[in-house]
Amino acid sequence: MSDVLNQAIVSGLLIGGLYAVMSVGISLTWGALRIINLAHFSFILLGAYATYQISTSLEIDPLFALLVVIPAGFLAGAIMQIFFELTKVDEFQSLIISFGSVIILQSIIRTIWTADFRRIDRDINPYESMSFFVGDVAIQVPLLLAFGAAVGIALGTSLLLSRSYFGKAVRAIVDDPQIARAYGIDNRRVAVVLSGLATAFSATAGVFIATFQSLSPSISLGWFGIVFPVVILGGLGNAVGALGAGVIVGVAAGVASVQWGPLSASLVTFLILIAALLFRPQGLFTRQGSS
């Protein structure tokens, strides 16, 4: 049984990376900008469909889609944030506006690609079941790529926030927007760039999803149960936390699946979540007292 357990742990770890990439966008905008942007789910989906379309139409490796999806995601996020800035919405209103956007985006996706399943042909997409072995454990390549991206995003964001001027500006805005403005920080510009980054991350998650899953507009419904636990455990606005939380969620679900059956996996995940909320509400990875 331990072989199976090892495999479950490793796969859980890797898919946790994907979960992290899916969640970091919404976590950043919620934590730093106080905006609950459900449209991130649609952007993940759009990133996935864009990858499908680019890969299928041009008959190229799906990862090339990153070249298009990342800047497009950034742009979309920036535009949304500009909209939020202009309309000065609070958290509730941002939730509803983003929900309205989700409805519109889902509808557009459905009109273009229909509700039926789409997957990139295996002749064009080599990644679907691509793997290599380390000992007896298989490492699934699409998940490894996502994990790599998650690590990159986590480290990159962390460095950005701690070392760069931009990062300091973000932290200043989160702490106290008025004072930040007094010190000459352009809140709007910072927020727009941050939102662009966050959406670019979400869209990137979509690229990886397209390399190994079949797509239909409704698959985004299942992501709530993945993203929100990761966001909560990782701490709002904490990119490194998102990676850690993704890994915990992935591994816990994988181990539970092997030990007690797949039906128990989500229960275990959510119980961990509730325990974490009760004992460390700021998230497992955020220092006590920091935002």
Partner: peptide
Amino acid sequence: VVFRLRKLSGEIFALTTLAVAFVLASVARL
């Protein structure tokens, strides 16, 4: 449980209520 927590922010409460919904769904499934 949650109202006794000193550090309970608005967002954490919101997310906890969401988590409760997921837990109950899992229990019903199981």
